[in-house]
Design a protein around this nucleic acid. Structure first.
Length: 493
RNA sequence: GUCCCCGUCGUCUAGCGGUCUAGGAUCCCGGUCUUUCAAGCCGGAGGCGGGGGUUCGAAUCCCCCCGGGGACACCA
């Protein structure tokens, strides 16, 4: 069957079965290794699994693959958990592979007993020496048919064996069905007898992964493309253990602007960093959801709950995606503009410390201030040191250039008249008529009154709407700042 | 080197043989609104990697080429 057809067919049928059978049947997982921060590629994989599980009323399993003692770190595992929590991707079950070593050993023993695996005493160095440094060369089977004598000698040398899985030559020509891509077949997989248990007693990825996916009842493995060539190996292990493999589907990779696998050197690529920069979690979820999945109707902005409803596998594409920070910023801006005052305050809170505790005491004022400034920013990080925001809490320093501008007519006169008229008109609606009146009295255009007022209040030529600034500052503060400006002008004369 | 995957505007994508002089979004450019900047609104530029087939008809199906990416560990 052709790929396109088959894709449509499998997706539709999958859903059919799913709802007919038992809607709680789908079990998917996300299985990160805690060797670094959660990067956006991993987050996208987690998200798709989560969306799918939630959509189908299935189970989302989180499994920390920390069998590599040398590279795994507790803090990374915690960081990943925290990042997922932040994104709102809640899991139903959580496992650590490092706590399941007995299980792997048990199955490894079984494969050994059944002659489907064998001890290998070669050190990595010896194997490398025999094969050369070239990649793509397979283990030569040196230890496959070791005699008792040889075994004993190695043991006496104090060698600890690794366990290798027997891969018959004829199995290397193989194929499997990918529920996103259709049939994937391999002319000849370049895989010799591969290690399933390391000499330190921990399992390798391909082995632990199979044992766990089976033990945890995973029905569908949805992971990134870089696992395609692992899949046949894993299927062999399922077969050797007499298990039915789950269905496999492979998402594309997420690339940097240079079309290479996204990595640290591409800038902010971990969700921790995005969080630190002030992206909203639901904006990140929204953006990531549309990387490789196209929402029906072409709508761009979605709440997480809406994504769950709209998500479907048949709109997932398998070509690689470039991570576009600009688009993420746009999505973030859209979500920022949707927040309520209270939500905005809570989200912005970590980015307001620099204003000082005193400034933050009046939550109502902070919210008003944020509502003024946020439309002009893309990330909450842009609030840090933001002059438009600062000026709402601290009087501006009027520098020489500003005073110079303010000293030019009709500015001084305009400020004085505004000050006189302030007591009766400084509401949000009242400013405009007031300015127009003063402009009329002076015989100048309104902008020649607006501009000096802006300079006196903020020390800057641009910023949010003046009336709103006045409203946030309050009449007293507005008067104080105008008076201050006039004083400085007086002094400079 | 071997194997695998992928290929529509710069980027994310719609597209399942005619409705495509290829639609949307972002970015960029221009205009508009406004007391300023941004946002908003309106408009514009920009693409089916190439070549062969199949067909009355191909972005859509097939083949070759080219390009990009990935995998080949006692990492996951």
């Amino acid at each position: 069957m052709e790929v396109g057809l088959w894709r449509g067919w499998v997706c539709r049928n999958l859903y059919g079965q799913m709802s007919e059978r038992n809607s709680g049947k789908l079990r998917v997982r996300f299985a990160p290794s805690p060797t670094g921060f959660l990067h956006v590629g991993g987050a996208r994989t987690a998200l798709f699994n989560w969306l799918w599980a939630r959509r189908e009323g299935g189970t989302f399993v989180l499994r920390i693959e920390d069998t590599d003692l040398a590279r795994s770190e507790r803090r990374f595992a915690e960081g990943i958990l925290e990042a997922l929590r932040w994104l709102g991707l809640d899991w139903d079950e959580l496992y650590y592979q490092s706590e399941r070593l007995e299980i792997y050993r048990r199955y490894a023993q079984r494969l050994l007993d059944e002659g489907k695996a064998y001890h290998c005493f070669c050190t990595p160095e010896e194997v490398a020496a025999r094969l050369g440094r070239n990649r793509g060369l397979e283990y030569d089977g040196h230890c496959r048919g070791l005699s008792e004598e040889e075994r004993r000698r190695y043991l006496e040398e104090g060698r600890k064996p690794a366990l290798r899985f027997v891969v018959p030559e004829e199995k290397k020509h193989t194929s499997f069905r990918d529920f996103l891509r259709g049939e994937i077949s391999f002319e000849r997989l370049t895989t010799g007898d591969f290690v399933i248990m390391k000499s330190d007693g921990t399992p390798t990825y391909n082995f632990a992964c199979v044992i766990d996916d089976h033990e945890m009842g995973i029905t569908h493995v949805l992971r990134a493309e870089d696992h395609i060539s692992n899949t046949p190996k894993q299927i062999w292990i399922y077969e050797a253990l007499g298990w039915e493999p789950p269905e496999f589907g492979h998402l594309s990779m997420i690339l940097g602007p240079d079309r290479r696998k996204l990595s640290k050197r591409h800038g902010a690529t971990s969700v921790e960093e995005l969080r630190a920069q002030g992206f909203l979690p639901k904006a990140v979820v929204n953006y990531l959801a549309t990387l490789g999945w196209s929402p029906p109707g072409g709508r761009e902005i979605w709440e997480p709950e809406e994504l769950i409803q709209a998500f479907s596998l048949d709109r997932v594409v398998t070509s690689p995606q470039v991570f576009d920070l600009e688009k993420l910023k746009w999505v973030n801006r859209k979500h920022l503009s949707r927040l309520s005052g209270k939500e905005l305050f809570d989200a912005a809170r970590p980015f307001l410390e620099w204003l000082g505790g005193e400034a933050l005491r009046d939550e109502g004022k902070v919210i008003k201030a944020l509502e003024l400034v946020v439309p002009s920013i893309s990330t909450l990080g842009e609030l840090v040191g933001n002059p438009d925001l600062e000026v709402l809490f601290r009087p501006p320093e009027l520098d020489g250039a500003v005073l110079e501008e303010l000293s030019r007519p009709p500015a001084p006169e305009a400020l004085e008249r505004l000050l006189e008229a302030l007591p009766d008109a400084i509401s949000r609606e009242g400013l405009k008529p007031l300015v127009h009146r003063v402009a009329g009295e002076l015989g100048v255009r309104p902008r020649e009154v607006f501009h000096p007022l802006r300079l006196a209040l903020t020390g800057r030529g641009k910023g949010p709407e003046l009336a709103s600034i006045c409203e946030v500052l309050g009449r007293e503060e507005v008067a104080r700042r105008i008076r201050k400006a006039l004083e400085l002008l007086e002094k400079g004369r």
